[in-house]
Write a protein that binds this DNA or RNA. Structure first.
Lengths: 278, 278
DNA sequence: CGTTGATTTGAATATCCTCAACGTGCGTGG
DNA sequence: CCACGCACGTTGAGGATATTCAAATCAACG
């Protein structure tokens, strides 16, 4: 394990508890500027390792990995679920296609996330998984996974947790789409990303948005122009700062969080609304 | 079994195939005006029976049933999932509460539906289930269910199907909320209800909406006033007819379905748009 | 360095929300 | 069984928000 990584692993214990592995097995990516590929890999692959009930060390570098370029599809909705995936590097979006051709982005997934498990019960993929940027994913054979689950309760439980999380997330998103307005949705989205980046040991204060405005819009149920305008408003209000186009800074999470949990606009104290459009 | 029921069971085979029981075991409620309680009960209880891997006949009348009045809660989000439920009579809504007190209706459930299974993987209820009208539900003990699942693959599979359905439904609703406008959402909702009523052996052409406009609004991500106005527009356009306030008629499903799969308004041929507000 | 696709910005418009007032019908209790 | 009260539903008007189309700007990439 890298020496530099050691120093920066501040949320090891927490993660270890959440996932149920010994702290020693938990390795985080530490920083954007120094990807520290080896440790990063173990972070995402140890998920696979846990699921397959093997040692992390044995697995790193052994699990079959798929390389995808931006826009390529990892799996397609409707096909038999023969594998699930642990994202090693990069990021993906889950996309649902309506018969009429419309698309809806259901979620974004980053390194260390498992994808495909929303279709685990159905035994088919429920949505497409598309690479948002050049990415790598570890393949986990579904049969091997089932076998491991039957043999070891902890694996069984881990799968259940992952399936449960995708269910929870879907329902949470229903709340977001059904009862929040644009600004609140975007704030929620940014804070969620921030949290997840912290969970990966990355900065929760500054991170990259590698997906397009259109994807964000689809995910949040609005158009890319609206997303763009909201970003501009957030920036004017000092809630965020954009360095380069796909890099966002959140100087003060509290300020952003203040947009959440607001009842309809008219109930807001208008003068205190940092987003009033002039 | 009622004699009259026999005559009206036109979709028995289909349902039997979908659910995997012999056609003889499938009994439908046939008509609003004659609830045919006994057969109706077996329709919802045979779900429980299948899950518990017992004979339908043995179970009807034996499964513990809870009676709820309008507005009462069957289970609460966050609590340990110790039971799942098969709805015998009436209808329920799943409601999610945000920390700030906002509520989002996640779905509606009718007789014969199983509820609670969205939280099966999480082992806690993910949402509240609230009776929309006076209702009865059969209790199914989660431990007994787990035991049955371990013992019999068919029960295992059946649970998986139910869990998968709730996942699918959640994702489908994300598409509805994320990429449809009001009129399209309502049309989708009505057609969905229509389909589900047909699945129960009831009329898909005319049925009751026992939930309030506010609930419909919450479910569809809009306000009750908007729901009301949309109903009015639909009626003016001849797409539906409302007999009494909670009874809706769909004379021609095709006309309603034509509202679906539309791209943004500007792409519609305006003169052909039956909903143009004058 | 030019081309392409993504993003931003502007202006006009549609949609939906919000508040308010009114109508309706259901259930309760007399 | 009737009358009453109250929650639910409808309708209207005005305004906020988001969409739509168009045009300009920017960034990435060969």
């Amino acid at each position: 394990m890298h020496d530099t990584c050691e120093k920066l692993l501040n949320c090891r214990e927490e993660t270890s508890r959440a996932i149920g592995l010994a702290p020693r097995s938990v390795v985080h990516r530490m920083d954007e500027s120094d990807p520290c590929t080896r440790c990063f890999q173990s972070r995402s692959c140890f998920q696979a390792a846990l699921l397959l009930d093997e040692g992390v060390d044995r697995l790193v570098g052994q699990t079959a990995a798929v390389r995808l370029r931006k826009g390529q599809r990892l799996f397609a909705a409707g096909r038999t679920l023969d594998r699930v995936y642990a994202i090693r590097t990069g990021s993906f979006k889950s996309v649902m296609r309506a018969p009429d051709g419309r698309q809806q982005v259901l979620g974004f997934h980053f390194s260390g996330d498992m994808i495909g498990l929303d279709g685990y019960a159905a035994q088919i993929y429920l949505c497409d998984a598309v690479a948002v940027e050049a990415s790598e994913a570890c393949e986990i054979d579904a049969r091997a996974l089932d076998a491991a689950a039957r043999a070891r309760p902890i694996v069984q439980r881990r799968i259940q947790t992952l399936v449960a999380d995708s269910m929870r997330r879907a329902q949470q998103n229903l709340l977001v789409l059904g009862s929040m307005q644009g600004a609140e949705r975007l704030a929620h989205f940014l804070l969620d990303l921030s949290d997840r980046h912290r969970g990966l040991g990355l900065s929760s204060r500054e991170f990259a948005l590698r997906m397009t405005r259109k994807d964000i819009g689809s995910y949040l149920g609005m158009y890319s122009e609206t997303v763009s305008r909201l970003f501009a408003r957030f920036e004017n209000a000092g809630l965020i700062q954009m360095t380069r186009r796909h890099q966002v800074q959140i100087p003060d999470r509290t300020a952003l969080a203040a947009l959440l949990g607001r009842q309809p606009v008219s109930l807001r104290i208008v003068s205190a609304n940092p987003l009033a459009a002039d």
